[in-house]
Amino acid sequence: MTHALDVAGLCVSLGGREVLHEVSFALEPGAFCGLIGANGSGKTTLLRSILGFTAPSAGRVALAGVAGYVPQKLQLDPDMPVRAGDFVELGLNGHRFGFPFPSRARRAKVEAMLAAVGAEAFAGQRIGELSGGQQQRVLIAHALIRQPKLLLLDEPLANLDLRASAEIIALLKRVAAQGVTVLLSAHDMNPLLSAMDRIVYLAKGRAASGRTQEVVRTEVLSALYGYHIDVIRVHDRIIVVAGEGGAHGGKHVAAIP
């Protein structure tokens, strides 16, 4: 099976400092993968190098097709006269010069995409007025309208409350079920544990990756974080917590080299 994304031996330096060191992992079509790591561990840099925004100093990134990108948030003036639907349409043709004649076929495509992400209700509102969860849906629609093989999201859950966060995860799960590979970064893995089947864990510029059930185990996570981590099962759900209690009594565990 060909990979949707293949990262091999990727090294990236920013301002003379090596931010990523020999990162390697590959994702199959339809995989739902969480990119987990503390703030400053290089998650955004990894996403930006996959997108080609940042040139690597070594290694390579291979994509099976178009990559869609969802930034964390748009910094927008709430009065800006651009509706949610207009922004999704820009995903189709925003890079093209030429008179912006309206087209019924394009409009229909945009409306179908807005419906698919559950954004019809606020499609006519100014994009700067939308709430965090609403804006996230519109950003996802904007990325998906080019029918990418890979969807990259930078901390999509960072500004959301519990409910909006669960809804966005459910939406992304549907997207992955249709064969689009989803790679999203997050500093907290708990909301994603029920959804993701793959984890890429970043610490100090190095990556470890594997299937979720292989990685989310007390001994593996404790080694990755360099601190005792408990994996707790409650009513068929898994929760990851750090610190006191458990077999290791909260003592520090050696980090991976």
């Binding site: 990108y69 930034p71 748009l74 927008l76 651009v82 820009l90 925003g94 890079h95 912006p100 904007h142």
Partner: peptide, 23 residues
């Protein structure tokens, strides 16, 4: 300006994405 309407709007709203699309 009308001929550049979409690129000018795109790079104002989402400069990163617009740059990734070659603008």
């Amino acid at each position: 300006l009308l001929a550049c309407f979409r690129p000018l709007s795109y790079s104002a709203i989402a400069p990163d994405i617009a740059a990734a699309r070659g603008l």
